[in-house]
């Protein structure tokens, strides 16, 4: 899922302070799971903002709503008939949702209420870690299901590098060496022969290096 983190409330206040009527808009998908932009977070943020502005002598209207997703036309349409009532929308969706919303509703400023961080997993409640950089050419089949692109700081495809020590990366003792994990995993799978195969040069044109990307599936287009 897409992992996001809360923005400091001071930063949000600074952005919306000149408006009079705001809609805080949450998203029921990834940002709900990582507890940054779901219905609960919308309620808390809206309540805190209302109290802040009241406390500072301004009765700002701050309404709340949460959509199933902000990255799909059909769900974004839900707010079409009410969006003109607001001076701005504070979207707690990921960067995709904020942009899609802004593309759809040209005359309303859409502000981000979270910082979008990475594609990751919930290791435990309150701990999300990166697992994928969406490079567009998955090589997990040959690396025992551990991604050197997202989990190795150097994105080395034939590792480990000389900075690996006791299974940890030279970045710090809290960072696992991805290639150490790969070797251990291949050993457990009885596939260490795979490790001996030199990985050829990766085609990075499917990564961000090739500019903004598209997936076109004519088979599902109507």
């Amino acid at each position: 899922m897409i992992v996001a983190d809360k923005k400091p409330i001071e930063e949000i206040i600074e952005v919306i302070k000149d408006h009079d009527k705001i809609l805080v808009l949450g998203c029921n998908e990834c940002v709900t799971v990582c507890e940054a932009g779901g219905k609960k977070e919308v309620e808390i943020l809206a309540s805190a903002l209302r109290m802040y502005f009241l406390n500072n002598g301004k009765e700002m209207v701050i309404d709340e709503h949460t959509l199933e997703r902000q990255c799909d036309h059909e769900y974004l349409e839900e707010v079409r008939d009410r969006i003109d009532q607001y001076d701005a929308v504070l979207s707690l969706a990921c960067g995709v949702g904020v942009q899609f919303m802004a593309e759809k509703y040209h005359s309303t400023p859409i502000y981000p209420g979270v910082n979008t961080c990475f594609l990751g997993a919930t290791e435990q409640r309150g701990l999300w870690t990166e697992r994928c950089q969406a490079c567009g050419e998955c090589m997990l089949a040959t690396t025992g299901g551990i991604c050197p692109v997202s989990r190795c700081a150097k994105r080395i495809l034939n590792g480990p590098c000389g900075g690996s020590s006791n299974g940890k990366c030279e970045l710090g003792k809290e960072v696992d060496c991805a290639w150490h994990l790969i070797v251990e995993r291949l050993k457990a799978l009885g596939r260490l022969d795979d490790y001996e195969k030199v990985c050829s040069i990766k085609d990075w044109s499917t990564d961000r290096a090739g500019g903004p990307r598209k997936v076109i599936r004519e088979d599902v287009q109507v």
Binding site: I9, A48, M51, N56
Partner: peptide
């Protein structure tokens, strides 16, 4: 923490 930040 929130109440401190919003001045309550």
């Amino acid at each position: 923490e929130i109440l401190d930040k919003i001045g309550v």
